[in-house]
Design a protein around this nucleic acid. Structure first.
Length: 893
RNA sequence: GGUCGGCUAGCUCAGUUGGUUAGAGCGCUCGGUUCACAUCCGAGAGGUCAGGGGUUCAAGUCCCUUGCCGACCACCA
């Protein structure tokens, strides 16, 4: 460890903004996050879901990043060799759109620039923004291994993508062919079904009459897109629809075009929608395409890739090359003129949009590259069904499996200006290839046709869907297809933490490709984190402007506070509304811890503290034993919460232990010992226990709040190495066998006594009387009374409740806690609070009543578990004793 | 249309396999110059657990049903 330790002055308040960047730098310089494949330790690995290279850290990244970091830090503390691998995604279609929008602001287009200049601009963007998000993850405190930073457009990654394509191609799973696709006229590319965003539109439904070719009758069809009728190749009716059965097998006459359309019977047609007759346009509607396939209908294309009407002979002259929208209006006019328009009505329906640019999707038939899914899918279904890969929360298993069951072939080609090129080449030297163009896929860029040696090869013009390349992320980043040390050591990864919206786009596809190429699952556990909505429950989005910038939150409250909040809500399994006050609360918690440490460290100054293991329970006073017992409980809970992917419960529980139990009860209880002479055994004990508690708290909280805890750790004895430094043995706390539940119960009663006295003394005129006095006597068998009745217990109660013991306190209030009757009063006479006593008597009677009724029920006693019945009996007898004391006090008062 | 989730204190949310008096943070009220901390300390008020029905000795928790909110999938022209 070569780096200088960061010295943080013990000022009154914890100032994260001053300390965090410096600490992070020191960690990075010390190489704490660099994974070493050759270290002989158990391994733990996560790959960071690669954010878009042009992106910025948003709240979702912060939450997911925090969760991943919690697990990486936790595993390092357990002695694991941890790899958390970072990287960014080129996000072809997204990046292209972002840059195009920037160009548009200057009134320019990418077409003006040309391909080469545009590519230069893109590279510039990658350089500029690729590092921005890296810096932002550092602000969060993410222990990513920056020496392994990857980008999906790195040369090595490009090779992995080509390799994957070529293998699938050679295995016959990738093919090229004409099929109906979602075409985005703006992006001038196809997009996959998953990238279509459906939005509600108010349109008009047009009813159009198609006369029968034989002159006998007509069919009326309904459509919102009359312009597509030009490409109609049939009319479909439901074969069970009595109205139309006689039409099946005959021909209808397509208005304006004059084409004869076969009438087919197809179950797909809903008799109760529209007229029950459907115009079939296989070239421009996915469902019609399916119908067309079933009945062998012709495919016509009427609308081209720029959404213009095509220049075909069968298109009426005046419509040709018009844009489709004005063509629609004209077609409606023409139909009306020729009396083919039966009626129109307003119609609300969902229309597909490109989820990147917002353009309305144009379904059309096009030559595209497809990936055949079933052979990839089946193993990926199996591993999840068998639980080899597990979703947390578990319900996403069903979401995943349901989607997988209905997988269709994946359109993997895009017609964009940037992205991974489809590694396919064409040799047009047909003479040497039996009169055909020879097509082949190649990982390396081929210099010549492998068959005929022709050097003039034509590369395929398409690029690949971004998700095709990110589907390889967990192993391509580790060097696949080479058999690298990283792959051998860190693959499969342990955890994938991601947003649920990309379960299909990304998670499913990683599972499928990994099983194909690595013959193994890519990750064991998939954590689907919560979505943080705005305070009104709306989804945060750039366009709405309701987003919360995590960096702004870090500036305000510190990374520790933002992380603790993220860890608390991130894995609850439920979406949450953003609540800034919770981040603020964690900032105050950080400050609280800081001050607890200041108190304890101050108390230990000049004291020869002893290792806690050497201190026998018999040497400790009850509060100290209690604190160590609670510590064991806290360790056990936190560990199991983290292990079972409930980091929120872990951080909440630790906050409770630190603040309520350690600070408010324990430290207050032992404070006097802190003021004894440094050599006083009680001072040594208290300081030793205090240091131990701070040390353990720093370790337990470190995965969540790494900066503050590290700053504290470095001040503690033995804290000469950073918490994340590699160690032989585990540094994560383990229970020390000091749990003492009987003592916890007794101290619990003592604390309750304190609280009750504080409450009772509140109404007394202590100022006039100078001091509030109490007297206590044991009036019933209660094991807790012994501790309370001891000198130790009396002193503690008196001090914490700020009262004095007296055998003759004027009783203004009578309290019954456990088996003790406690009289609370002022030194001067105070009027007895009859009303309070009476309320308590009544409440106790009511409780006795309830319990008696339960026990009176035959069925309860016979059917309930014995321990439940016994508990009710115990409660009843305790309540009766209590009532007796209260009534006695009441009669005396 | 289908699937899934939610409805618990003024607000944001916990509530493990059904079992004492349903919890936390924030907010609120009252009281505190306690020598670690006012980014604090102490005490308190506040909930017919969305409505209805059922199972059970016992339901916030299990089942049915209604309502409202949300997500995802599908895409009826």
């Amino acid at each position: 460890m070569s780096s200088e330790q960061v010295k943080v002055p013990m000022d009154k308040a914890w100032r994260p903004q001053d300390v965090e960047p410096e600490l992070y730098r020191s960690w990075e310089e010390a190489g704490l996050f660099v994974a070493h494949a050759d270290r002989p330790r158990p391994k733990f690995s996560i790959v960071l879901p690669p954010p878009n290279v042009t992106g910025e850290l948003h709240l979702g990244h912060a939450v997911s990043g925090t969760i991943q970091d919690v697990y990486c830090r936790y595993r390092r503390m357990l002695g694991f060799e941890v790899l958390w691998l970072p990287g960014t995604d080129h996000a072809a279609i997204g990046t292209q759109n972002v840059i195009e929008r920037e160009l548009a602001k200057e009134g320019r287009t990418k077409e003006e620039l040309g391909r080469a200049a545009f590519q230069k601009l893109v590279d510039e963007w990658y350089r500029t923004y690729g590092n921005r998000i890296v810096e932002q993850y550092k602000r969060l405190g993410a222990t990513l291994d920056w020496t392994r930073l990857r980008f999906t457009m790195d040369p090595a990654y490009i090779r992995s993508v080509r390799e994957a394509f070529v293998r699938l191609y050679n295995d016959g799973l990738i093919y090229r062919g004409p099929r109906i696709v979602n075409w985005c006229p703006h992006c001038r590319s196809s997009i996959s079904d998953l990238e279509v965003d459906w939005r509600e539109h108010e349109d008009t439904l047009y009813y159009i009459r198609y006369d029968m070719a034989d002159g006998d009758g007509a069919l009326v069809v309904a459509t919102v897109r009359p312009e597509t009728m030009l490409a109609d190749s049939g009319v479909a009716v439901n074969p069970n629809d009595a109205r139309y059965r006689s039409f099946i097998g005959r021909r209808a006459f397509l208005p304006l075009v004059g084409r004869e359309l076969p009438v087919v019977g197809d179950e797909y047609v809903k008799s109760d929608f529209g007229t029950g007759a459907l115009k079939v346009t296989p070239g421009h509607d996915p469902n019609d395409y399916e119908i067309g396939q079933r009945h062998g209908l012709a495919i016509y294309t009427a609308i081209d890739k720029d959404r213009n009407i095509v220049n075909e002979p069968w298109v009426p002259d005046e419509l040709r090359t018009r844009d489709a929208l004005t063509a629609r209006a004209r077609i409606v006019e023409m139909l009306r003129d020729r009396d083919h328009l039966v009626k129109t009505e307003p119609y609300t329906h969902e229309v597909g949009h490109c989820d990147r640019c917002g353009e309305i999707i144009e379904p059309l038939v096009d030559e595209q590259w497809w990936c055949h899914m079933p052979p990839l899918r089946d193993p990926a279904v199996e591993v999840v069904t068998e639980g080899k890969t597990r979703f947390v929360p578990e319900r996403y298993t069903k979401v995943y499996l349901d989607w997988m069951a209905n997988l269709r072939d994946w359109n993997i080609s895009r017609q964009l200006w940037l992205g991974h090129a489809v590694p396919v080449y064409y040799c047009d030297n047909k003479a040497d290839h039996g009169g055909q163009t020879y097509t082949f896929a190649s990982v390396e860029e081929p210099k010549a046709c492998p068959q005929c040696g022709n050097q003039k090869l034509r590369p395929d013009p398409d690029v690949l869907d971004t998700w095709f390349s990110s589907a390889l992320w967990p192993y391509a980043t580790m060097g696949w297809p080479d058999e690298t040390d990283d792959l051998r050591t860190f693959f499969p990864t342990d955890v994938l933490s991601t947003a649920r919206e990309i379960i299909f786009l990304w998670v499913a596809r990683m599972l499928m490709t990994s099983l194909r190429f690595m013959d193994d699952i890519p990750f064991r556990t998939v954590l689907i984190h919560a979505v943080i909505q705005d305070p009104q429950g709306q989804r945060m989005s750039k366009s709405k402007g309701n987003g919360v910038d995590p960096l702004e939150m870090i500036d305000l409250y510190g990374a520790d506070a933002v992380r603790a909040y993220g860890a608390e809500v991130g894995m609850r399994g439920q979406d949450v509304r953003f609540d800034e006050s919770k981040i603020e609360a964690y900032q105050r918690f950080a400050n609280k811890l800081w001050n607890m440490a200041r108190l304890v460290l101050g108390s230990a100054e000049g004291v020869a503290t002893r290792p806690i293991e050497e201190i026998q329970a018999s040497e400790l006073d009850p509060a100290e034993r209690w604190a160590l017992s609670r510590l064991d409980a806290a360790i056990e809970r936190a560990t199991s919460d983290i292990e079972s992917f409930r980091p929120g419960d872990a951080i909440s529980g630790l906050r409770y232990f630190a603040w309520d139990e350690t600070a408010d009860w324990y430290l207050e209880a032992v404070k006097p010992s802190f003021r004894l002479q440094p050599t006083d055994p009680a001072r040594v004990r208290a300081a030793s226990v205090g240091m131990h508690l701070i040390r353990q708290l720093a370790l337990l909280l470190h995965p969540f709040m790494p900066f503050l805890t590290e700053a504290l750790w470095l001040k503690l004895p033995g804290g000469d190495q950073p918490i994340q430094a590699p160690r032989e043995e585990t540094i994560w706390p383990v229970p020390a066998g000091r749990r003492d539940e009987a003592l916890e119960a007794h101290m619990g009663v003592l604390f309750e006594v304190v609280t009750r006295i504080r409450d009772a003394a509140k109404g007394l005129d202590a100022a006039a009387a100078d001091t509030v006095m109490i007297s206590a006597k044991r009036v019933a068998a209660d094991p807790s009374a012994e501790l309370l009745d001891s000198d130790y217990g009396r002193e503690l109660v008196a001090r914490l409740a700020r009262v004095e013991f007296s055998d003759a306190a004027p009783a203004a209030r009578t309290l019954v806690v456990g088996g003790l009757e406690i009289l609370v009063g002022a030194r001067a006479a105070a009027p007895s609070d009859h009303a309070a006593l009476e309320r308590e008597v009544n409440a106790t009677r009511a409780k006795i009543d309830t319990l008696e009724q339960r026990l009176a029920k035959e069925e309860f006693v016979s059917k309930a578990k014995p321990e439940v019945v016994q508990r009710v009996r115990d409660d009843l007898s305790a309540a009766r004793e209590r009532l007796a004391i209260l009534e006695d006090a009441f009669s005396r008062a």
